[in-house]
């Protein structure tokens, strides 16, 4: 029966990519619980697509695209809700709130906190490159940008992180 084939394909994709998508979301939104929701949402959307009989040629790329869209939606929601918070984080001084987070959590949390301070687009490129291991070409494809733009963003993201972590050190 054809239904089985579709279901099989979907579940196989889940087994194969669930962790990767979850990880991606974690590093994008710096929140584990939220990341789980986003990952699940991604797969739900993929199922909705497949249940309409549409074919997916490249599952991996498709998943990343859906996840990215959901994350961007998430950013917008966040932005609307907490503009003040964003302003503090992007400033020269890391907000007191973030500092407290860094002090109490381990190195991993530190990383996540740092990442959260990056502008969305920088973080997107950086995470895709160094967390997901996507090539610059693939990232450009996914985000509809040129490879050059992606390379620049990655570079700037790293620079900014360096600066931020030094500042954090200073504040200690």
């Amino acid at each position: 029966m054809k239904t089985n084939a579709v279901e099989q394909e979907f579940l196989r994709a889940y087994d194969q990519f669930a962790d990767a998508i979850f990880r991606h979301c974690v590093f994008r939104v710096s929140d584990r619980e939220k990341a789980k929701d986003l990952a699940q949402g991604t797969f739900v959307r993929v199922w909705d697509y497949m249940s309409q009989g549409k074919e997916i040629d490249n599952m991996r790329a498709f998943l990343y695209r859906i996840a990215n869209n959901l994350i961007i939606d998430e950013y917008r929601k966040k932005k609307d809700e907490s503009l003040d918070r964003m302003r503090d984080e992007e400033g020269f001084d890391i907000g007191t709130e973030s500092m407290r987070d860094i002090e109490t959590k381990d190195e991993h949390a530190q990383t996540l906190a740092l990442l959260e301070c990056l502008p969305d687009k920088y973080r997107e490129a950086l995470v895709m490159r160094h967390v997901d291991g996507l090539s610059v070409k693939d990232i450009a494809h996914l985000t509809h940008e040129t490879e050059n733009v992606i390379s620049v963003r990655i570079h700037r993201a790293i620079e900014k992180l360096k600066a931020l972590s030094e500042n954090h050190g200073k504040h200690n």
Partner: peptide, 18 residues
């Protein structure tokens, strides 16, 4: 510069669903 990236990658390795 590499430290940051190493840090990120290390964190990434340990991030997964239980």
């Amino acid at each position: 510069m590499e430290n940051i990236i190493k840090q990120i990658k290390k964190g990434a390795k340990h991030t997964r669903l239980s």
